[in-house]
Design a protein around this nucleic acid. Sequence first.
DNA 1: AGACACCCTGTAGTGACTAAAGAGTCAAGC
DNA 2: GCTTGACTCTTTAGTCACTACAGGGTGTCT
Lengths: 150, 150
Amino acid sequence: MTIGELARRTGCGIETIRYYEHEGLLPKPGRTSGNFRRYGQEHAELLSFIRHCRSLDMALSEIRILLRFRSAPDENCGEINALLDIHIGHVEERIAELKSLEGQLRALRDKCRSGRSAEHCGILQGLGGAPDDRGASGDNHVPRTHSTKR
Amino acid sequence: MTIGELARRTGCGIETIRYYEHEGLLPKPGRTSGNFRRYGQEHAELLSFIRHCRSLDMALSEIRILLRFRSAPDENCGEINALLDIHIGHVEERIAELKSLEGQLRALRDKCRSGRSAEHCGILQGLGGAPDDRGASGDNHVPRTHSTKR
DNA sequence: AGACACCCTGTAGTGACTAAAGAGTCAAGC
DNA sequence: GCTTGACTCTTTAGTCACTACAGGGTGTCT
């Protein structure tokens, strides 16, 4: 199947597929005489695996590790458990951060209920002070709030 | 004060201060005869404002809008409210996504409690299928799970 | 005069894509 | 065989908010 068919079948963008190949997550497929990529069922399954992991917000580096285990089925899966536990920890941590953030934002929002001029806007005044320490640990790969993804 | 002093006073990295200047968030300061940046109290307050906004996970583009209101105090602050409401919506949305994610990850984790070989690991098998639609809207600038920030 | 901390500009890297330019290929219809 | 149009190719650059250099200049103290 062509890259376009693979993309349709997996719901993954064509550019993303080429990106995964470049990053070594997908093996280089065969080519037609005209240099088009030719994929088989095994590529579709592998790509679905990767997209599933990504839908669970795993980093590509984590997925790389899982793929290693997937292709070396004799190894003990304790490391897989550990990886997942760490990832769950990251997600929990980010949820806690975002909840704290939401509380702060709501408190700020309550400072300006009316249509006053910006000069007296409680929100701007509330933002003037020193920020609270957000207490992020620094090694959490789970993004906080912004990002434009499909 | 020098850029280093400003950095220490605001808890912001020196490179970040120069980056904000480049991005137009901080006005260009005066310079010494040797071309060193010279900052005053007003710069420190402005930078604290920006860092406070960033600690609330606002995007620089949002902060730029707030700064516009900050320097044009006659304008009505209804837009500020709207901006904050949208941002709170983004954060709420991301929290909901992450909670759903956490549930999925825990379900996956429960598939492998023992130290079996990877060949029979329930986690790898659970990851093989098609991913759930994560239902992200696409215009939420709040990151999901990974990211290495200080 | 030397040492050393600090500062300067400019460039490149991060993660996981996304977009676009400019060219080539494939399949169907005529 | 030719044309059309959809598809694909590679390469490069952009996204966001920084962070990390490299290679040089400045300020201050002894």
